[in-house]
Amino acid sequence: MFGNNDESTAPVAVGETYEVTIQDIAREGDGIARIEGFVIFVPGAEVGDTVNIKITKVLRKFAFSEIEE
């Protein structure tokens, strides 16, 4: 039932969109937002930005997204 589905514990899903506020910047320069404490990397965002994002990849402890235009 649970298998290897990494998305099972994530509060976000690939293809879904969310409005988030960027809280931190990662070492690589990506913005970091959190949904229910779950880390989401947002390339091209700055701390304090509120952006609409689309989830592109979900892993066990974090997800990647892109800013929706």
Rank of each mutant, 00 (worst) to 15 (best):
P43H: 11
F2V: 11
D30F: 00
V14I: 14
I67T: 04
E69W: 04
D49M: 10
V42N: 03
G37E: 11
F41K: 04
L59M: 13
V39I: 14
E46I: 03
D24Y: 03
G48E: 14
D6E: 15
I35W: 09
I22A: 09
G44Y: 06
E36Y: 09
A45C: 07
V51K: 01
I40Q: 08
I32E: 09
P11H: 09
G3R: 11
G44C: 04
I22N: 07
I25A: 06
E68W: 03
G31S: 09
M1L: 15
T56R: 05
R34P: 13
V39S: 11
F62Q: 05
V58H: 04
V58P: 04
I25Q: 05
T17E: 14
T9E: 12
E66H: 07
G37D: 12
D30W: 01
V14P: 01
G37V: 13
P11Y: 10
Q23S: 14
N52S: 07
E7P: 02
T21C: 14
V42A: 10
S65R: 06
D30H: 03
F2K: 12
E66A: 08
A63V: 13
G31I: 02
G48N: 12
M1T: 13
I40S: 10
A10S: 14
A13F: 02
F64A: 09
E69S: 10
E46S: 11
A10G: 06
I25D: 02
D24I: 00
N4P: 05
G37C: 09
E66S: 13
A13T: 08
F62K: 05
L59Q: 14
R34W: 10
